[in-house]
Design a protein around this nucleic acid. Structure first.
Lengths: 187, 187
DNA sequence: GTCGACATGTAAATAGTTACATGATTCT
DNA sequence: AGAATCATGTAACTATTTACATGTCGAC
């Protein structure tokens, strides 16, 4: 079974309720969906061109002085395309986790190494937690009538819950590792 | 900055304490690390060959009747290679989540569609939860002296905690969506 | 005048997946 | 006899990332 290219839907979704340039689109993703979806320059610009050729978006070049920006507007065909995809059941993903793999092989190195890995991640998580709080506050400022507000809230909520669970787990790991006195496997 | 190929370390790690054939190696991954790490045939066999050429593993063909299996044993260089990698700080990952993206765009479709997505995921999570319980029981049977036992426990624990947090979040989402009566954005 | 943000793209490489291809052995 | 599992691999494709390349505009 062929995999569908999901970048197209991420882009069409961002354009659904407002026309954007490639640059703006990336900036928005960076400030809203980064934690669960991201595109790079090298994926956004070529995909916008493809979508234009397919008639999913229309392009219009605007000028601010000499600086040109190509603003993309979604078409009805484009809207139909995303909404059809939104109804398709989301694939269950098992993304690779480098940290888990390293922990899984923890018996092959001295435990200080693994402890350090976990402590570093703990710190990162605490940072992320702050970020999510900031984002939550920003969303709270949007008027309750904004049709997307609820969905933004639920999306960040996922991040908050996830990071909390991760912190719980990390602390449990650290406690058990520090308690444990086993030697590492000979190498 | 060039990204390192992590498949090699996953494979070297699996070979660390016992020689395995490519087939066995994949089977082990499938039954132990699937939820956070997986390799396919098309990545395992070529990588084993590369590792052999690099002197990280040695190969020996064994026969069971006419059926040949190539068993790979890790070398000292191979062990040094993995252990060095294990000490490198694990990259923070923001894996793409199709479900999150679909939820984020939830305002563009009628809410029944999003509710269905979440309910499907809830069911999958409940299945996964059972699987983790089974795995936990299996690990519990290993002798406490087994040097890897603690790390196996901590790894599944991550899965358990994660799936519980996800279920909490999904229920919260479903409750709020069902309560909410907003109309979707015109399309 | 130079730094950072605005703005758009291409080229090359790498990683990862799917489909293909083959054949042996064991179990029912 | 046929299915499932054992066993190893390649070819083709698709996706994704990194690095490159270029130029504008506003603020300090």
């Amino acid at each position: 079974m062929k995999k569908v290219n999901k970048s197209r839907y991420a882009i069409l979704g961002m354009l659904f309720d407002q026309p954007l340039s490639g640059y703006e689109l990336r900036k928005r993703m960076l400030s809203s969906t980064t934690y669960f979806w991201n595109e790079t320059d090298a994926s956004v610009y070529p995909m916008l061109r493809i979508l234009e050729e397919e008639g999913m978006v229309t392009a219009k070049t605007e000028f601010v002085g000499k600086r040109a920006r190509k603003v993309f507007t979604i078409t009805q065909a484009g809207k139909d395309d995303v909404t059809a995809w939104l109804a398709l059941p989301a694939e269950q993903e098992h993304p690779r986790s480098e940290l888990l793999l390293k922990l899984f092989f923890g018996a092959f190195v001295c435990k200080e190494i693994t402890i350090k890995q976990l402590e570093q991640r703990l710190q990162q998580c605490q940072e992320t937690q702050k970020t999510f709080k900031t984002i939550e506050n920003e969303i709270a400022q949007a008027p309750d009538t904004h049709p997307q507000k609820l969905f933004w809230e639920l999306s960040v909520r996922r991040g908050t819950i996830d990071v909390e669970a991760t912190i719980t787990w990390l602390n449990e790991c650290l406690e058990r590792l520090k308690r444990n006195n086993e030697k590492k496997i000979q190498n």
